[in-house]
């Protein structure tokens, strides 16, 4: 029987990350749980232990309830938008005879752009007296209140984030395209498959690992939306774009309810974890059932 040996060097090399994890993840996590059980605002000298009151209040709060549903509405709008647009970009880049890298970098640049700046530009573009709206009003009689109507506000924010992430996900999908063996297409051509059959029966199934990655990443993004909402709508109108991050920010830094905000953050983490786990499982099962993985 082999005797287990203590590997000091291994622990030593891992120690910087372990210390980092303990200081910046484990301790704050425990601290956050503790904070969520109190009514502390972080600055008062005295505070009370209120058990699960913050959690009970949070689940009854319209802002938190809105954050729960708004996240899934964002997901429903953002994920198809970003997957389709990144797929199109990847297909176009993949088909280019040269300068693929250059074009990919170009599409990737919005990912590096400041969310604040892009939001302010969009705000200007969609303002009542912008050229777009003047044309829409004068030529088509359309007077759209982009950021003050629940549906359009949500779609505008989803579109900005989709624009930001399209290049990033296209990079992953292009790598997926490049990894598909060209001989398969040659064989299919000999068998006389049509262009649509080739895309849906060959390309998409073989691209599934890359698509799976982008799907999971984009679903994760839906749970962390903040900057664009903060800049454009402030969570409105009437909570229509109130995300988890907005709710946590408002409670922690505007209303100074740190304990309550911690409870909301914990609820948000649990919802995010469970949702991503379930969606991942569904995608895996679906992929296996259709023979894509």
């Amino acid at each position: 029987m082999m005797k287990k040996r203590f590997n000091g060097t291994g622990w030593l090399f891992a120690s910087p990350y372990l210390f980092y994890g303990i200081i910046f993840f484990i301790i704050p996590l425990i601290w956050s749980f503790y904070l969520a059980l109190t009514d502390w605002n972080l600055i008062a000298p005295v505070y009370e232990f209120i058990a699960f009151d913050n959690f009970i209040e949070a689940v009854q709060n319209p802002g938190v309830q809105a954050a729960f549903f708004v996240t899934f509405k964002f997901m429903a709008a953002f994920v198809p938008m970003v997957i389709v647009s990144s797929l199109v970009v990847a297909l176009v880049v993949h088909g280019l005879p040269r300068f693929k890298g250059l074009f990919l970098i170009g599409f990737f640049l919005p990912y590096l752009a400041s969310g604040v700046v892009s939001s302010l530009i969009v705000k200007g573009l969609l303002s009542y007296n912008s050229s777009i709206n003047v044309v829409l009003r004068d030529s088509f009689g359309l007077d759209i209140d982009w950021l003050n109507s629940p549906l359009s506000a949500l779609l505008v924010v989803a579109a900005i984030i989709a624009w930001k992430f399209t290049g990033y996900y296209a990079l992953i999908l292009t790598a997926g395209f490049e990894g598909i063996n060209k001989e398969i297409y040659e064989a299919a051509a000999i068998d006389g498959v049509t262009a649509s059959q080739r895309f849906f029966k060959i390309t998409l199934p073989l691209l599934y690992p890359a698509l799976f990655t982008t799907l999971i990443l984009s679903i994760g993004v839906s749970f962390g939306i903040f900057t664009e909402v903060y800049q454009l709508t402030g969570g409105g109108p009437n909570y229509a774009t109130n995300t988890w991050q907005m709710e946590i920010f408002n409670q922690a830094f505007t209303n100074l309810n740190a304990g309550y905000a911690s409870a909301v953050a914990i609820i948000a983490s649990v919802v995010t974890f469970v949702a991503i786990l379930m969606i991942r499982k569904i995608l895996e099962v679906w992929g296996k059932r259709n023979g894509w993985v």
Partner: peptide, 14 residues
């Protein structure tokens, strides 16, 4: 009363 987001509404005379 206009409550839609407008750029520089007072300066533009809107």
């Amino acid at each position: 009363l206009l409550t839609k987001q407008a750029t520089d509404p007072f300066e533009s005379g809107l």
